[in-house]
């Protein structure tokens, strides 16, 4: 009987704790989003203008893929200025 009492206590405490923690997840998530939106909105990176990239006759789709890959790998800091076939 005592063990059953502990089980019900665990059920109550456990479910309340899970709800509280996930409520905190929601609250913290919202606070972080608001903070980031206000103080660190996305850094505007200079878009690579196709005209400025010397493509060396490379297919535009391939060029876009290379530019995108460089952006991903360098975290948006790298820019493609020239592409040439070796």
């Amino acid at each position: 009987m005592n063990e059953l009492g502990i089980a019900f206590e665990m059920m109550g405490v456990g479910m309340i704790t899970v709800f509280v923690i996930l409520a905190l997840v929601v609250l913290l998530g919202n606070l972080i989003i608001r903070f980031v939106n206000k103080y660190i909105p996305e850094v505007v990176t200079q878009k690579v203008q196709p005209a400025t990239v010397k493509s060396g006759g490379i297919n535009p789709k391939k060029m876009a893929a290379i530019v995108s890959a460089v952006k991903t790998v360098t975290g948006g800091k790298g820019h493609v200025s020239k592409i040439e076939k070796l």
Binding site: V25, L28, I32, I33, F35, V36, N37, I40, P41, E42
Partner: peptide, 25 residues
């Protein structure tokens, strides 16, 4: 509202959540 800098939110989220959870559970 929409998220203006998802990457920053995703980096901050595990740090803040980790600290809060370690306090509560």
């Amino acid at each position: 509202y929409t998220i203006k800098n998802l990457k920053a939110v995703k980096i901050a989220f595990p740090i803040v959540l980790g600290i809060v959870i370690s306090i509560f559970v």
